[in-house]
Amino acid sequence: MKYRSDFYAKALFAATEKNPEETENIIRRFFRLLKKTGDISQSRKILESVEKLAVKKSGDRWVKIEYSRSMDKRMESNINNYFGSGYHVENVINPLLIAGVRITIDDEEELDISLAKKLRKMFSTAIHEY
C-alpha cells in the first residue's frame, strides 16, 4: 500500500470540500489514482473514512452499533432514536459477539455488553489465577 487509507481519505475530503461543484470529477480522478497506486482494494475503507470525516466536520458523532444477530426492526429503530440528532448511527451484524451489543462512538469510546467480552474477562482472570 502506497499511502495509509486515512491519508487518502483526508486528501479526498479536502479536495471535495474545496471544490464541491467538481465532486464527480474529483471522485473519478481519485479512483484513477487508486488504480495507479495499486490501492483500489482499500477504496471501501477510504470511503468509510471520508464519511466519518464529513460527520465529524458537521459536528456530529459517529456511532457504530454491533449486534450479534439481526435485530427486530422496531428494536433497532428504538435504539437509533435513543441517540437523536447529532449522531450518525451505523448498524452492523457481528456474530463474534455471540450475544449482546457493542456500541462504539467515534472509534474512541466503547460500551461492550456482549457475551464475548464477559467470557474473555472471566477466563483471563480465572486462567491467570491458576
Partner: peptide, 25 residues
Amino acid sequence: IVEKLKREIESFRDESKWERVGEVT
C-alpha cells in the same frame, strides 16, 4: 481446581462501562 474455577465463575461480576478504545492500524 474444578471447584475453584466453579466458585470463580459463580462469583464473577462484570460492570459494563464506557471505555476508551483504539485500533491497531
